[in-house]
Simulated assay, not measured.
Amino acid sequence: MTSLVVFSHLRWDFVYQRPQQLMSRLAARHPVVFVEEPMPGADHAWLERHSPCAGVTVLRMHLPGHAHGFHDEHMAGLGELLAGHLREHGIDDYLLWFYTPLAFPLADGLTPRGMVYDCMDELAAFDFAPPALIERENAMFDAVDLVFTGGRSLYESKRLRHPDVHCFPSSVDHAHFGRRDMPDHPDQRAIAHPRLGYYGVIDERLDMGLVAAVADAHPEWQVVMVGPVVKIDPAGLPQRPNIHWMGQRRYDELPAFLAGWDVCLMP
C-alpha cells in the first residue's frame, strides 16, 4: 500500500485545519507519515513519534541547534531521522506531499513514487517569511507531479507555473459544525448578547483596527475572539470591555462557541 510522507510547517496539534482534515481522511487508504518542523535546542538528535488518529504517524524531530523551521542547519539531521524511520518500518512505496517549500531539500536521497505540492497559503506573503521560500517553491514547481491550491486566488497565481495545477478549495466540516441544539460553551455563557465571533489563528492577517472600531462603535455588541495568537505581540491586541480573547481551543470545542454567537466574523 502506498504511503504518504507529508512535510508540514504546521504541527498536528496546532489549529486543526487543512492538513489534518485531509490526512486523517486519506489515512483510511494510505498510511500517513506526518513530518513536522523540527524542535531545536536538543542535546542530541532524537525522534518523537505519536499517532493522533488511525493511520497517521506524526514525526517530531528534536535536533541540536537554534534555527527554527525547516532550516538548512537541520536538513542533514532531519534526513537521517526520516530515512531511519522509513527503513525501520519498511516504507519503500510512498509519495511525498509538501505543505511548505522549505522542506523540499528533504526530497534529495528519497525515491518517491511521485510528489505533490498542496499550496494552502501564499506563505511568502506572511510576515517573517524566510528568503529561501520563494527559491525553493520555484524548484518545487520544476520537480513535483501535481499541485493543489487552497483557493481560487491561489490557483490564479500558480496555474501558469506548472502543467498540472488544480483548484482544491478548503471547505466546511459540515458533520462537525452542522449539529443543531448544541449547548453554549460554558466559558462564554456569562457574555451578553449580541455576540459577534471569530475563530481561527490570530496573526498579522487580521485587521485589529477593524475589531477595535467595531467594539468602539457598538459597546453593546460583544466581540468573541477564539484562537491562538501567533507572530504578533499579544500586548498589542485591542483591549475593550466588550472584546473577549478566549485563547486557543480544541477542535471539538468550536461548535459550542459557534452555537452561542449571533454573527460570525472574518476580520
Rank of each mutant, 00 (worst) to 15 (best):
H30D: 08
A129G: 09
P169L: 02
E88W: 05
L206T: 08
E204R: 13
Y198R: 12
M266E: 09
E135V: 09
L206E: 09
V32K: 13
M246H: 05
V230T: 14
H193F: 07
K158D: 03
F70I: 00
H85N: 09
T100N: 03
R25T: 10
E137D: 09
A124L: 11
L95T: 02
L133D: 01
P112E: 09
G200I: 00
H85T: 04
A27S: 15
V263L: 15
Q188L: 12
L258M: 14
I243W: 10
G77F: 01
E253S: 08
L81K: 11
L254C: 08
D187R: 13
D233M: 12
Y251A: 11
L106A: 01
V147S: 03
D93C: 12
L10H: 09
A124I: 09
R249A: 08
A143N: 02
M115K: 07
E36H: 06
D108P: 02
H44G: 12
R113K: 13
C264G: 15
Y199P: 01
R195T: 03
I243N: 13
P52T: 04
A27L: 06
F14A: 15
P64G: 00
W245I: 13
L254Y: 04
A217M: 11
H68A: 03
D173T: 00
A45F: 04
D145F: 04
H185N: 08
V35H: 07
V116C: 03
S157W: 03
F14H: 12
P40R: 01
V116K: 01
Q222W: 02
G260D: 10
L106G: 00
S8I: 02
A28G: 09
A45V: 12
E88Y: 04
L81R: 13
D207L: 06
